[in-house]
Amino acid sequence: MIRFEGVGKQYPGGNEALRGLDLHIEPGEMVFVTGPSGAGKSTFLRLIPLLERPSRGRVLIDGADLGGLPGHRIPYLRRRVGMIFQDHRLLDDRNVFDNVALPLIIAGRGRDDIGRRVRAALDKVGLLHKEHASPVTLSGGEQQRVGIARAVVTRPPILIADEPTGNLDPALSQEIMQLFEQFNQVGVTTVIASHDLSLIESLGYRRIHLEAGRLAWG
């Protein structure tokens, strides 16, 4: 599903985030990405929806080389990759419903369709009763669940999350991970970067460990 072949990423100014990364993530797999700060975890995740382009090597999604993807096709790639961020990236001037609806609006869905899908996604993350609330009135865990609902509302085949539990206490982190497991169980390829080693080990999925921009093991 996701294949990296000799991928290097050098930022302007010389900082080399990835130095020849080779790995493959199978369709429907659930994978954790670990490693010290600056090991290249975020860069690795950002290359999948082409938030960055690699300096060298190839990134393939579903067999298609992203290097050949023209700029105007990038939005359609991103619609197939649900993204979840540590800081949620919600729009504070819109309520929970409208935040979750955004990917469907972008796809040009009709109103009834949007209503049905948004409520299904909110129900899944246990926030159906908060659809009219403003994100700022929600707790950190609730905001993260809104972010997850937004990422899955279009049922993308790939889900990537960058430190989704970074600001949450262990119990809430556990809940969030269980949500990811549920999505993975219906076939979504799930890639999660995290520092929370004890939680990761308790779940027992494959771990990709990066160090200094290379695959250390996994």
Binding site: R78, L90, P103
Partner: peptide, 16 residues
């Protein structure tokens, strides 16, 4: 700006 960034992030085309 924030809304534009998020739109682009989740697959909004330039036209959108």
């Amino acid at each position: 700006r924030a809304a534009i960034e998020i739109s682009k992030l989740i697959g909004g085309t330039d036209a959108f």
